[in-house]
Design a protein around this nucleic acid. Structure first.
Length: 463
RNA sequence: GGCGGGAUAGCCAAGAGGCAAGGCGACGGUCUGCAAAACCGUUAUACGUCGGUUCGAUUCCGACUCCCGCCUCCA
């Protein structure tokens, strides 16, 4: 398949570069300092879908997604809550795990934590010091950005652009540069202030800078060079730019062969971010929207486009899922048709689905094929033999599965006090007492249930 | 200031130099006691504005307008 690469600004062929044939991807995960929001969900869903699609295409994937468990935000949060960093991390990491599971995400092959890799981080910092690319200063260790010739190649900024940008911003990165040789330099290791979590190092007690964990851990689990580095577009600069400087500076080799950056979620066109105060918590969405509907909704926007979140979109996704689910319901009375034309028609659309996914993970186009596949299947289902019908249905479901969408509805149990009314209504209908039958339907409606009269009798459904 | 993204129907959202996907909604039909679901049909002479290239552009080029983002923590 082909995927848009930020580094070359072009679609590139995605294939394993390692001789063992396994595709190596590293995804920047979360800092566990707060409740995840729907923006985090989007990034997770995008890269989970990519991974599933590669798997569907027969590619074995080594997927590494880190967890940042030491960082300024965590320290701030701990101070704010009057708790230790350990407790804060444990709390929000548990929440993250719970919600990620509800997103129907595949577990990464490795999920490394920064604090469990201090030796690797220290070794990398030392290597950069030895190479003259870093320097120690007052208990901190900084990266000497001007010594790395490729700096800016990912974000397409020149060093002077960055400096100009920094100056253009009031305050900005110019603050707290007294220990740096150059305001551009970033920290590999930060000396600890009293009371902060810290680890021993050749430069005194301290903790890792934000960027270095990714360089250290990706190298450990994937090697110096790997196939794809993923994250949201706000990580391009400075995070990923700094990772390149660290890793390529240390090894002299290509770091990631390709870079995938997904678009973010917006609310009223503005980026969803805690600082803007416009976050939609992941938990709230998961509580009111079935996971397949959420993933369907996300899939209907291309992974690199901004995703505009809205209540309306949520509602529509719910309807779309429900409709899809019902279209794909197995018919109660089997037909006898050979299903040849169904299979021929479905084959074309399945191929179109695959082609769309192969072309820069174009899930909106792929889903459009799923919808027409569902229609074609729905047309055939009254007349076609169950065997070809089931075969095509399985093909459709397998494709949906690559988007993490399992459309089968959870079984909802009818409240005990309502079920006798169902019997009463059946009797009323038999007696053609339509008034009573409709009354019961009203009672159900008030409780959030509908009654549908089908060829097989009454079916109660949760609204 | 540097870099980047966006503007397509009532709403959401694809797309590509040559009949403008799909979803939701709406409307009509088949079915139904009535509904629902399913199925059938209708629903953008038109893709921010102005120019240019072209036989032909919404799709390429230029200018412009508006919105948004990164450059400071961010998925």
């Amino acid at each position: 398949m082909v995927l848009y690469d930020t580094l070359t600004r072009a679609k590139v062929e995605l294939k394993p570069g390692h001789p063992d044939g396994r595709f190596r991807m590293y995804q920047c995960g979360m800092t566990v300092s707060g409740e995840p929001h729907i923006g985090h969900a989007r990034a997770e869903i995008v890269f989970d879908t990519l991974r599933r699609w590669l798997g569907f295409r027969g590619v074995s994937v080594i997927h590494v997604r880190n967890v940042t468990d030491i960082e300024d935000k965590i320290i701030n949060k701990a101070n704010e809550m009057g708790l230790s960093c350990e407790v804060v991390v444990a709390k929000y990491d548990a929440i993250r795990k719970e919600l990620f599971a509800r997103l129907n995400l595949l577990s990464p092959t490795f999920e490394p934590y920064a604090t469990a890799h201090i030796p690797e981080i220290l070794a990398l910092a030392q290597k950069l010091l030895d190479a003259g690319l870093a320097y120690a200063s007052g208990g901190d260790v900084y990266y000497r950005v001007r010594k790395f010739p490729g700096y800016g190649k990912l974000s397409k900024n020149t060093l002077d652009d960055v400096v100009a940008g920094t100056r253009a911003l009031a305050g900005g990165a110019a603050a707290g540069t007294d220990r740096k040789e150059d305001p551009l330099d970033f920290d590999l290791w930060k000396g600890a202030k009293p009371g902060e979590p810290s680890w021993d190092s050749p430069w005194g007690m301290g903790r890792p800078g934000w960027h270095i964990e990714c360089s250290a851990m990706s190298a450990k689990y994937l090697g110096d060079t790997f196939d794809l580095h993923c994250g949201a577009t706000d990580l391009i600069f400075p995070h990923h730019e700094n990772e390149i400087a660290q890793s390529e500076g240390a090894t002299g080799r290509t770091f990631a062969r390709a870079w995938a950056h997904c678009g973010w979620v917006t609310l009223n066109k503005e980026k969803m971010a805690k600082s803007v105060g416009n976050v939609v918590p992941m938990r709230d969405v998961l509580d009111r929207l079935p996971t397949p509907a959420l993933r369907l909704l996300m899939g209907q926007t291309h992974w690199r486009s901004p995703f505009e979140w809205s209540d309306v979109a949520e509602r529509q996704a719910k309807e779309t899922l429900e409709s899809l689910r019902r279209q794909l319901e197995v018919p109660p009375t089997p037909g006898t048709g050979s299903g040849e034309s169904l299979q021929a028609e479905a084959g074309k659309r399945l191929a179109a689905f695959d082609a769309a996914m192969d072309d820069d993970l174009s899930t909106p186009r792929a889903l459009a094929e799923v919808f027409s596949l569902a229609t074609v299947w729905g047309q055939a289902k009254p007349s076609v033999d169950p065997v070809p019908l089931a075969r095509v249905r399985a093909d459709i479901l397998a494709r949906l599965g690559t988007l993490g969408i399992e459309p089968d509805a959870p079984v909802e149990v009818l409240p005990a006090d309502l079920s006798p009314l169902l019997g009463e209504r059946a009797a009323a209908r038999k007696a053609k007492d339509w008034k009573r039958a409709d009354e019961i339907r009203v009672v159900f409606k008030a409780r959030g249930w509908t009654i549908e009269d089908t060829a097989q009798g009454q079916v109660a459904r949760k609204l």
